[in-house]
Nucleic acid binder design. Structure first.
Length: 197
DNA sequence: AGCACGATTAACT
DNA sequence: GTTAATCGTGCTC
């Protein structure tokens, strides 16, 4: 897990569903004041372009969505419900807006810091939701547009062994209550199930 | 300038 | 299962 095997721009410059699937099992790493906070990515969701009525890009290019129209391998961080931040990765080629929401990680490093921020909850619930990840890793609007592929980046994803297909579960994306079909139900959510087959 | 609502969470009953 | 918390964003007037 050294800094020379973190995912490069080519990884993100691919179809959103491919990237969402392959991000499973990789290490999300947040460098905060020289301290490493890291966890295994367990769950992702793909949001794919202006045609996807579940994606913020359905509104076209706006102040909020412009980072998704930029080059891949950057963070898209937005605010919702008046309280919560959400971490996404911009994917696909420039001008082709799409993003991957990071929904759940299993914390590995920086447990003291994460505990200080999430310790009021049982450990299992420290980073098992998109807003919880941002709370645990201290991610907010300052990270919108941050380059995930910079040499001295503060937010990177490190490579890891591919997760076998039999460990991966797919399903509809969460929370799209007023989104019309088929977008509401397309199986663009990916997660590592802990059950072997 | 005003308004309705959301890619959620935690604390309720 | 239900609901309050809380404000940026995009849309309408």
């Amino acid at each position: 897990m050294s800094k020379n095997n973190f995912l490069q721009r080519e990884f993100y410059d691919r179809p959103a569903l491919t990237v969402a699937r392959e991000l499973l099992g990789k290490y999300l790493v947040r460098l905060e004041d020289g301290q490493r906070l890291a966890g295994i990515i367990l769950e992702t969701e793909a949001y794919c372009g202006e045609e996807d009525l579940g994606c913020h890009c359905r509104a076209g290019r706006t102040a909020r969505t412009q980072v998704m129209y930029g080059p891949p391998g950057h963070a898209y961080v937005y605010f919702t419900y008046g309280i919560h931040w959400m971490l996404n990765f911009v994917v696909e080629s420039e001008g082709n807006p799409a993003a991957i929401l990071i929904r759940s990680i299993e914390p590995l490093q920086g447990m003291e810091v994460i505990s200080a921020r999430r310790g009021s909850q049982p450990m299992q619930k420290w980073t098992d939701g998109p807003a919880k990840i941002c709370q645990a890793l201290n991610i907010d609007n300052r990270f919108n547009g941050v380059d995930l592929c910079a040499e001295d980046g503060v937010l990177i994803v490190e490579d890891a062994e591919p997760v076998p297909e039999s460990y991966v579960k797919t399903g509809p994306r969460v929370g799209l209550n007023s989104v019309p079909e088929p977008w509401k139900s397309v199986p663009w959510r990916f997660q590592i199930s802990r059950i072997k087959h």
